[in-house]
Simulated scan of single mutants.
Amino acid sequence: MYIIRTEIINTKKSRILFDNGIECICCRPEIRKFDLEADKEITEDAYLELMKDYVGKRAKKKAMELLIRSDKTEKELRDKLKRECFPEFIIDETMAFLHSYHYINEDNHLETYIRYHGKGKSRIYLKQELKRKGFDREKIGYYLEEYHDEKEELRYLIKKKGADIGKMSPKEIEKLCMQLYRKGFSQSDIRKEIFHYPE
């Protein structure tokens, strides 16, 4: 196996491209130990050692650091590791490792996220947010049904805005209605809450 290209990132790291198409970032001690220079050959054993004992361990450490800071979905972790130039097979191995120790628990994460980050958010808005984070669509629907009260969040948002409906002009009320509608709440729920229309 040959090293096709090396690219210095900074004084401590370089990006290495191997002739099997794998690209990764290596640190100075690894570069010295394995003599990672362009147009040089690396044995299969040395390559596997580099990937397992250095690149692989660094990926696991990075993923653990991210999880210590805050809960992450598998998609968020994968995206972050990709941006750090970890090879796909290393990312797969890292995810398998995290799942084996239950470090990724997306059910708990989803419930917690809805409870603590769903305040004042419509179901539509929150659903889009959760999809972007990579949660399973079916689970999103289930947990929103269980832990998100659309009308309660609408009341919370109106209160948060400090809106005193009795003292607002029709124009101000209409502006408030439009703000709430743009946040994803339905017009019927908004008007029921503001004008106390019957259910």
Rank of each mutant, 00 (worst) to 15 (best):
H148Y: 06
E93K: 14
K57Q: 10
I25A: 11
H109L: 04
I194R: 02
K119W: 05
L77Y: 06
F135R: 14
N108S: 13
K183I: 05
Y113F: 05
I9T: 03
P170N: 04
C24V: 10
C24F: 11
L110C: 12
R58Y: 03
E174Y: 11
E7T: 14
L126M: 04
D53Y: 01
E76D: 08
C177Y: 01
I173G: 01
L110V: 13
L130K: 05
S122K: 10
D164S: 14
I104S: 04
F97T: 13
V55C: 03
G21D: 10
E30W: 00
I165H: 01
D149H: 07
S100Q: 07
Y197G: 06
Y2I: 15
K80E: 13
M64I: 13
I90T: 12
L50V: 13
G166P: 06
E172L: 06
K52C: 08
E30P: 03
E138T: 12
K13Y: 05
Y101G: 15
K121A: 01
E74G: 00
R132L: 15
E37D: 07
S100D: 04
A46D: 15
C27N: 11
Y125N: 15
Y116N: 09
Y125Q: 11
F89I: 09
L67N: 05
D19R: 08
I90D: 08
T112Q: 13
M51S: 15
R132F: 03
I165E: 02
D71H: 00
K82Q: 15
Y2F: 15
Y47E: 07
L154T: 12
K33Y: 01
S70R: 10
D53V: 00
Q128M: 03
C24E: 09
F34W: 08
G21N: 09
L67E: 07
Y156M: 00
T43W: 04
E93M: 14
E111F: 07
V55I: 15
Y103H: 10
K40M: 03
E106R: 04
I190C: 01
H109A: 07
R155W: 01
I68R: 05
G118K: 01
E145F: 00
Y147H: 11
D149K: 10
K33E: 07
R32G: 03
S169F: 02
L144T: 09
Y143S: 11
D79F: 10
D149E: 10
K151A: 03
K12N: 05
I165C: 02
F34H: 08
G184S: 09
G56K: 06
K119P: 08
R115D: 05
M178W: 02
Q187G: 06
E93L: 11
T73K: 01
E146V: 15
I173M: 04
G118C: 05
M168Q: 10
I9N: 09
K52G: 15
I22E: 06
H117K: 02
H99G: 05
R191K: 07
K60V: 07
R28T: 03
K151I: 12
I25K: 08
E65L: 07
L130S: 05
I16C: 04
R58H: 08
K183D: 15
A38F: 01
T94R: 08
K127T: 14
T94M: 09
K161M: 12
R115S: 03
K171Q: 13
D45I: 15
L67V: 07
E199Y: 09
Y54A: 09
E150W: 01
I104D: 04
